[in-house]
Design a protein around this nucleic acid. Sequence first.
RNA 1: GCCCGCGUGGUGGAAUGGUAGACACAGGAGACUUAAAAUCUCCAGGCCGAAAGGCCGUGCCGGUUCGAGUCCGGCCGCGGGUACCA
Length: 851
Amino acid sequence: MDRYTPSEIEAKWQKAWEDAGTFRAVRDESKPKYYVLEMFPYPSGRIHIGHVRNYTMGDVIARYKHATGHNVLHPMGFDAFGMPAENAAMAIGGHPKEWTYSNIDDMVAQMKPMGFSLDWERMFATCDPEYYGQQQSLFLDFLEAGLVYRKNAVVNWDPVDMTVLANEQVIDGKGWRSGADVERRELTQWFFKISDYSEELLEALDHLENWPAKVRLMQENWIGKSRGIEVPFARTDGAEDIVCYSTRPDTLRGATFLAISAEHPISRAMAEDDPEIAAFIAETRKMDTTEAAMEKAEKKGLKTGITVRHPIWPDRELPVWIGNFVLMEYGTGAIYGCPAHDQRDLDFARKYDLPVVHAFHMPGDDTEVTTEALVPTKSEKVVYVDHFTGLTDATSQEGIDQSIDWMEARDLGTGQVKFRLRDWGLSRQRYWGCPIPVVHCDTCGVVPEKKENLPIELPDDVSFDIPGNPLDRHPTWRNCICPKCGGAALRETDTMDTFVDSSWYFARFTAPRATTPTEKADADYWMNVDQYIGGIEHAILHLLYSRFFARAMNITGHLSEKSREPFDALFTQGMVTHAIFQTEDAQTGRPVYHYPETVELRDGKAFLKEDGRECQVVPSAKMSKSKNNVVDPMDIIASFGADTARWFVLSDSPPERDVEWTAAGAEAAYKHLGRVWSLCDRIGKMNPSVSGSDDAALLREMHKTIHDVTMGVESFGFNAAIAKLYGFTSTLSKSKAGHAAMREAVMTLAQLMAPMTPHLAEDIWHHQGGDGLCAEAPWPQADPDMMIEDTVTLPIQINGKRRAEVTVAKDLDKAEIEAIALAEEAVIRALDGATPKKVIVVPGRIVNVVV
RNA sequence: GCCCGCGUGGUGGAAUGGUAGACACAGGAGACUUAAAAUCUCCAGGCCGAAAGGCCGUGCCGGUUCGAGUCCGGCCGCGGGUACCA
């Protein structure tokens, strides 16, 4: 062999690892464990280059930790339930199960050639009955522990997929998968009591030091803690008080009306004999509560005729309106409007001709509000109109607390902490999901299924020719025996949200074949996930649900206390993007997208190979099938090999940022690996007895590289680590060192490259006669003594501008360095006779002469 | 609107407050070759200059510091998150 041939090398070493069982994870209390996990994929059928980047990052960590003596758990599985399988069944016939498992086979076949250090024996799919059966068991335990309940709820209904969506799954008023306009409907649903954990989930964020600050902040905002006050307003007709919630208690002084939600019990009751109100409610229900829709929607209200008394001034009567902008789900479903200090309330007041009353003015400025509400910033002090005449910063926490105290002291209201986070509705009216293991019995009501009857398996004989849930119309599946009374009963036909499946898979990987959800010894040993890697798009949902599940599993005895936060460190990686090449269709004017291989690049412009027409280039767009800019990793492996693909996705761009896939970049990576291979080949052919001239310099550089690459890998600075490896390769190829030093250097290079390009590394290791497998060799150690240079080059600045540099012995003291610097010809010239006022010497760094 | 992040060559990007532009892509020059490809060597922020060297330069304006891409204040632009949340 005299050329770098990845196809041969890669297959050979993959087999060697498999035969040796190098990456099989076996519990071993004598070694420190390390659990590295990448978010498992949905089995769409094709591996995406983005998957390659994600799993390569995880693999670098896994292989590095393996080399540093850790017992590594690095598993892979499939998040296999969900609607695409049903959609495929509807579109092309067949069965979701077949579609899914066949896709899994395809994807495994595509992943294996990448050479990931995965323990494939632990693989499972969430649609395996062995997995979802344990999930049903967890559900029953959660139910018993009071962590699951049923309630009627107005839900987001996707009319195309015929299912309920979580608020989080509604994007711009549309279903996150179908894209259909979401409607509001009332159904009986199962809920996880995640809101019981609002405070804890929020508090614990502070301790997740190895999570990106951004993700913690996003979760914090999502949980949305606010401290405010609940104020009861007495009705003039003597009926029950209307309780409002406000986070700006001080604005109560300026309240001029109340607005209640269309879903408020009062609204609903009135709707029964008032068609106008009924119509208004119906109209409001059509709106959805998401940003885009609300933004456009007009703020509308309807007068109820009810009036209430102002708590501070009972002789003031305030009208009660129904407002389409008041949400029943947040606070109490009723607000008081203070037009003077809230723009929305002011707009509403102007529209319906309601009075504007000031609660406060700015010091020295008592201008009345007309079109713009007076809203102080957190640090601004205000002067209240009455009672509260001191200067106060109204919107700071202190100001709010002060107001609450004042109101509580007068029995006007009660301080309340509210969270935005709502319970997690998990019921889905779908077939391809985990069946909820309960039955409905006419005599006993809703009864949990017995654990010995688990798994409640999905029936295979279903059809998808009509929308809706095939379980509902299955002839026999629903029929069952009530576990309580033994009479005839009906199964629950709702299945679980697929986010449930992904909320505990990480725990299942510790004992994937166990006959209980987890196995204590295994979970205690392997948990927590030391390093979790995935996309930022899961910052809120998946990660928050998993945090809740870990707590619930702790309470029900499936995980220990330490795993209530299951992911010790989180890394969110960027996407792999690719340019889009488009032209315009002459007739329709619509864009036509061209595959990269049909385009030729010249002078930074793109032309169609076919007819030479110039294409418009959209750089760095997310890969999308419809834009014809998807790069298939299998093509890359076929042309360049897995190591090239792995090397390229790690180089150039920091891992948290998006990386642009370019053909030129991939080719450059391939060329480099070829150079490394040739270098190894050349060293192999050197005469072992020949000694060289600069062994010490080469080894010094080697130790520096070990240090820098180690730091790079430890800190997710893969691109920087790769830059160092380029540099060292260059040093090595130019080195005049003897065979022994060259051999040591190239073997070290192989080890340092091994996490990124494991096959090439293994091959070099083998050719140089390394012991056993490179993958099993201990990580090289940087020897600080070997990194020390005898001399150091110091830049000399004059007034902060670099004017010269001197190379001096490393151990000179400040005075000596100063003397040498001032004697430097360029310094004397630049000083031009001036006397330095001060000379700052930072040994090993810099000299700055101040004139 | 609010919250967060980011603005560095033609491009992707380096840089514990200490020589800005490492490394790579694209580009240029050269070597090898009949030629091309491949490979190798060198050059390369901008402006002035034959060179030595000088001036300018990390979105803009200011500040702290012996010294700022880095820290602070203000602005502009881009990206992300989020909300009729009371």
